[in-house]
Design a protein around this nucleic acid. Structure first.
Lengths: 246, 246
DNA sequence: AAGTGGTCTAGACCACAAC
DNA sequence: TTGTGGTCTAGACCACTTT
């Protein structure tokens, strides 16, 4: 009764390498045996080894460098995001006392369109500042941030983009706005775009955690629509109800 | 100046198929050309076609059935989860008026251990009910739910598992507990385990959204630690601060 | 020059499904 | 029987890195 007949050498090698890393306690950056070595050791074709390595690579456990070899990935400790009092992305990074860098990727001013128009409660023709920023932590690209701000509330916003740290800083420093608060957060997962893969340096199947936030200022209205595409392996989101429930 | 020299037929075919689906407006379940057809059409080896198909499959755009072919995946509309008042998983499904099925996968009673002991503020030796449930919506497996409940608060919990609907129902109906409220939520993304892949019927690289919740009852303490592993492509998480900020 | 990963070819055999 | 996807072999050529 032949049942299944799963020889599946690929899976065997896949499991072997996972255990190999654990057993030999390989640290980040240490090399694992080459494709040729593994092919010889398991008496299989190199293509089979490559299949196993591809699977491990897609799961983010290893990465490859042409001409060098395959290496163990870092543990990528997740960064905790707490939403208790409606803090923004930058404040969370600050409060966690993490060193972070912000690089402006793109700036433009364009019509809101229907979807964004609804969020800001303005006509689709109204102008929005659109700012794309790459955030890195410990030198590792972490998130692609996209901010939208209504032109009427922050005229000449683009004049203050030099030495950019965060949108919040600009709002407080140059416009004397009170601290904006987060009104709504939405989170889901999605597959990375080719831009995500390039900028965040992740494998093509690494999940992206997408977080959208709407920031408001009392008596003024929606000041910012903020959308983050963050490395799923470094993103941890937490909220507590302790205050609001007591 | 040769630059790059990326022939990359795989990527060419990958893009072609993506456009093919869009252009021909293929609906869920419709078949795409076979590996042999594509190999012949592009004058490449079947292995190259297989590489492109694997990438599309890993991204959840297509799926395959042995002996039949490759087919277009469904759009998998996300299910929205709102956290305004500390509702639980089941309530959210109920409020959304979605038909859902719960299948008990496993039940046991075991010592809490150190980690769970801390959450429940009990000794590691104390017993916990441990319940694993598979939730499906519209017949599609959606999430694997793991519940932990302290034995001392819900003795004979396992006696009420027939015709199981939700833990909440049992707590209210059989123990007369007030409605438990959520105290804390944590969310992150992770790669699926082999169990996730099997039970949720997802590709091996499809991200899992993991949500942990701690439920408490006033003056009684932590009643349930709830951990969901949900299909990332069907999970959308939302919270609003409207009430607490006004 | 030798070793590494990346891509591709040509072909074999298998399990499964439909006719 | 034919066509489909799944696995694997054997080997070629390329680009890149190290010695």
């Amino acid at each position: 009764m032949e049942t299944e007949h799963v020889s599946d050498k690929r899976f065997e090698i896949f499991t072997y390498i996972k255990n190999y890393i654990k057993k030999n306690n390989l640290a980040e950056g240490e090399m694992i045996p080459s494709q040729n070595k593994l092919a010889e050791q398991f008496k299989v074709n190199r293509n089979v080894v490559r299949g196993a390595l591809a699977q491990l690579s897609a799961q983010g456990l290893i990465y490859s460098r042409k001409g060098k070899g395959f290496f163990v990935s870092g543990k990528n400790k997740p960064i905790l995001f707490e939403h208790e009092n409606g803090m923004g992305f930058s404040e969370i990074l600050n409060n966690g006392k993490r060193e972070y860098e912000s690089t402006i990727m793109k700036y433009s001013k364009a019509a809101a369109g229907i979807t964004l128009g609804k969020i800001f409660e303005i006509s689709p023709d109204s102008l929005l500042h659109q700012l794309k920023v790459l955030r890195s932590i410990d030198g590792i690209p972490f998130a692609i941030c996209q901010s939208y701000l209504p032109d009427r509330l922050v005229p000449d916003f683009d004049m203050y983009l030099e030495h950019f740290q965060s949108v919040n800083t600009i709002l407080i420093k140059h416009y004397n706005y009170h601290h904006p608060v987060c009104r709504q957060v939405t989170i889901d997962a999605c597959m990375p775009t080719s831009e995500d893969i390039k900028l965040l340096d992740i494998p093509i199947q690494m999940p992206i955690l997408r977080q959208n936030e709407i920031f408001v200022i009392d008596d003024i209205g929606v000041i910012e629509y903020f959308s983050v595409r963050a490395r799923g392996d470094r993103f941890k989101f937490k909220m507590s109800f302790t205050d609001s429930l007591r």
